[in-house]
Simulated assay, not measured.
Amino acid sequence: MSTPQTSHIDRLRALPKAEVHAHLEGCFEPLVLEQWAARAGVAMPRPPDRLFEFTGLADFLHFLDWACGLASTRERLAELSYGFSKRLADSGAGYADVIVNPTHWKAWHGRLPEMIDAIDAGFSAAEQDGLPPVGLCISLLRTQSSDAAAELVDTLIALRHPRVVALSIDGNEAAAGRTGPRFAEAFRRAGQAGLRRTVHAGESSGPEGVRDAIELLGADRIDHGVRAIEDPELVELLVDRQIPLAICPTSNLKLGVYASIEDHPIDRLRHAGAVVSINTDDPVLLGASLEGEYALCSKAFGWSDDDLRALARNSIEASFANPDLKARLIQALSSW
């Protein structure tokens, strides 16, 4: 017999929606990592029962490098990608844009076309099995050089892989400092070549990172962006231009951006007129699910069904899915 709580989660799972801020690097299951590490003779960074206990963003990013280093074969990358699609379907998402940062994946350095091909194999197999389609956002790391950024964009433009929908940038803004000017040219060229642009900003940096993402990098979408709330003029700019914010509440809590969900600005941003969507960031590593994020915020902020429908619609419209798929998802949403 279902309880009111389980039936609410089931309804949220059934809500037609997209995920627009998730990292493939954040989708390793602990048992899989333990098996891969044993086979490679590599030490675990912590005991298995505490594997995903992070002291902050820097520790978290260091862990990503370790985990991704174990995904050394085409089969492992394809398996990881298929698993991401399965997780999407289990949460009731009809599409996702997933971020992959090649710098984390040691075994694939200098082999980006092969890496994209291996990831594509997993997503294609998933689609053939009826799982949701996924677009790939290839990400720069903030500590890279402008030359490395130019080289990545050159590779993506030459490759023109149909799975790749966007250029992204992520990493620890607080450690890297201001990087917008360094990457402006790479993002300009990516946009000219037809790639969408999505930018991590306003997480470990303040609102100035969000402003640079808009004015220097031409962001079509901001990943996080929550600290824009600290600058009312910036919030007005986001509202005027309707630049979506892909917000990940649990991530912001677990990585120490906010102390509690009640302190989180997602609802204030929404009431100010900003386009916000709900996402998981690194779902397995942070113990988040898409329906769980909707439930968390819905309870904290007293959201109605109309509010939830509006947020789901934002996620679909903010995605880089093709227009036909967006139309189908929005049509399904109207009858939820």
Rank of each mutant, 00 (worst) to 15 (best):
M1D: 06
M1E: 10
P4Q: 11
I9Q: 13
D10R: 14
L12E: 01
A14F: 10
L15M: 06
P16D: 06
A18F: 12
E19P: 06
H21L: 09
A22C: 11
H23M: 10
L31I: 06
W36A: 01
A37C: 03
M44N: 01
P47M: 11
P48T: 08
T55F: 00
D59I: 09
D59H: 10
L61H: 05
F63Q: 05
L64F: 15
L64C: 14
L64D: 01
L70I: 04
T73R: 15
R74Q: 13
L77G: 04
A78V: 07
E79R: 13
S81F: 11
S81K: 13
S81T: 12
L88R: 11
V98G: 02
N101I: 07
A107G: 12
E114T: 08
M115A: 06
M115Q: 12
I116V: 15
A118P: 02
A118K: 06
D120N: 11
A125R: 15
D129P: 05
G130S: 06
P133R: 13
P133Q: 12
L136G: 01
I138Q: 03
L156M: 07
A158L: 13
A158C: 12
L159W: 00
H161G: 01
R163K: 13
A166F: 04
S168L: 00
S168C: 11
D170H: 09
N172T: 04
E173Y: 11
A174T: 00
A175F: 00
A176Y: 07
R178Y: 11
F183I: 07
F187P: 03
R188C: 07
G194N: 09
R196K: 15
R197M: 04
A201Q: 08
G202A: 07
S205H: 12
G209C: 08
A213I: 14
E215H: 15
E215R: 15
L216S: 04
L216T: 00
L217V: 00
R221T: 02
I222Q: 05
H224C: 03
H224F: 10
A228C: 10
A228T: 14
E233V: 14
E233G: 14
V239A: 10
Q242W: 08
I243N: 03
P249C: 08
L255F: 03
A259C: 05
I261G: 04
I261H: 05
E262Y: 02
H264M: 10
P265Y: 14
D267K: 08
D267A: 15
R268T: 08
V276E: 01
I278R: 05
V284Q: 15
L285N: 02
L286W: 14
G287I: 07
A295T: 02
A300W: 15
G302F: 15
W303L: 04
S304R: 04
S304F: 10
D305S: 11
D306H: 09
R313C: 05
D324Q: 12
L325K: 09
R328F: 02
I330D: 02
